[in-house]
C-alpha cells in the first residue's frame, strides 16, 4: 500500500546551511494495516507525514502509494491524489473556524470530488457522537469535540490511507480512548491503512506494530551517536 525508499529531507537553517531531518531507507505499510510511529519531539514525525501526504516534497527518494510514485506528480497532481486517497488529522487546530461541524466535514468532500454526500457526513458525525452538535461552530466546541469532527472529516472521502498526527494530543484520557477506538474501528470496517503518530504509551500499546522513528531514520541515529 505505502512503500518508501531512500527518502531524504532537509531544511535550511536560518544561517543557510542544510540541516538533514529525515533519511529513511525503507518504510512500508500494508493495505488495511494499522500502525503507530513514536519518537521524541522534533525528530521529524510530522515532516514524514507531510511528505507521505504530498504536502511537502522530499529532497530525494520515492514514496509510492498503491503503486503510484507521488514524488513524480506535480503539486496540482498531488493535491488531487491526496484528496482522493488520503485522510489527514492534525495535532491541533484542525477545523476551519468559519464553518460548522457538519460543514467542515462536507467541505472535505466538496474539495475532493465536488460532489457531496450529506448522508455520509451526518452518519460519520453520528458515529463520533456529535449528532447534537452538527451546526456548532468550532469556537463553541471543546478540543475533544473538535478532534472528533476532524476524524469524521478525514474519513469522509473513504480514503485508502489515514494519516493521523497526534490526534489525541490535547484530549483528556476518556476522550483519547474514544477517538482512538473510533479511528481503529472505522479503518477496520472500511479497510483503510492507518499511520498514526502518538506520544501516548497507552495508545501505542494497543497497536501490534509500533515503529520508533529513530529506528527508521538514519539522521536520528546519527544524532543519537553524536549525543
Amino acid at each position: 500500500m505505502l512503500e518508501i525508499k531512500n527518502l531524504e529531507k532537509s531544511f535550511r537553517s536560518p544561517t543557510g546551511e542544510r540541516v538533514p531531518i529525515l533519511n529513511v531507507p525503507q518504510f512500508n505499510v500494508a493495505a488495511a494495516e494499522q500502525m503507530v510511529i513514536v519518537g521524541r519531539s522534533g525528530c521529524g514525525k510530522s515532516t514524514l507525514l507531510h511528505l507521505i501526504a504530498g504536502i511537502g516534497r522530499p529532497d530525494s527518494g520515492h514514496i509510492a502509494i498503491n503503486g503510484l510514485d507521488i514524488t513524480r506528480l506535480s503539486e496540482e497532481g498531488r493535491d488531487r491524489f491526496r484528496a482522493e486517497v488520503m485522510g489527514y488529522v492534525f495535532q491541533t487546530f484542525n477545523l476551519l473556524q468559519g464553518f460548522t461541524a457538519l460543514e467542515n466535514v462536507i467541505l472535505g468532500m466538496s474539495f475532493a470530488r465536488g460532489r457531496v454526500d450529506h448522508g455520509r457526513a451526518r452518519d460519520l458525525l453520528h458515529r463520533v457522537g456529535l449528532d447534537h452538535r452538527l451546526d456548532a461552530y468550532p469556537r463553541t466546541m471543546s478540543v475533544g469535540e473538535q478532534q472528533r469532527v476532524a476524524v469524521a472529516r478525514a474519513l469522509a472521502n473513504r480514503p485508502k490511507l489515514l494519516l493521523a498526527d497526534e490526534p489525541t494530543a490535547n484530549v483528556d484520557p476518556a476522550n483519547q480512548q474514544a477517538i482512538v477506538d473510533l479511528i481503529r474501528e472505522t479503518c477496520q470496517e472500511e479497510e483503510i491503512s492507518l499511520v498514526m503518530v502518538t506520544h501516548s504509551m497507552e495508545v501505542a500499546e494497543q497497536f501490534q506494530r509500533v515503529d520508533p522513528l529513530e529506528k527508521l531514520n538514519l539522521v536520528a541515529q546519527a544524532n543519537k551517536a553524536h549525543a
Binding site: I55, E76, D79, R80, R82, F111, A112
Partner: peptide, 16 residues
C-alpha cells in the same frame, strides 16, 4: 495561512 493550509490538506487545489 493555517486555514488555507487546512483547505489544501483537505484536497483544495491551489487555484481553488
Amino acid at each position: 495561512k493555517r486555514e488555507i493550509a487546512i483547505m489544501r490538506a483537505l484536497g483544495a487545489r491551489r487555484v481553488t
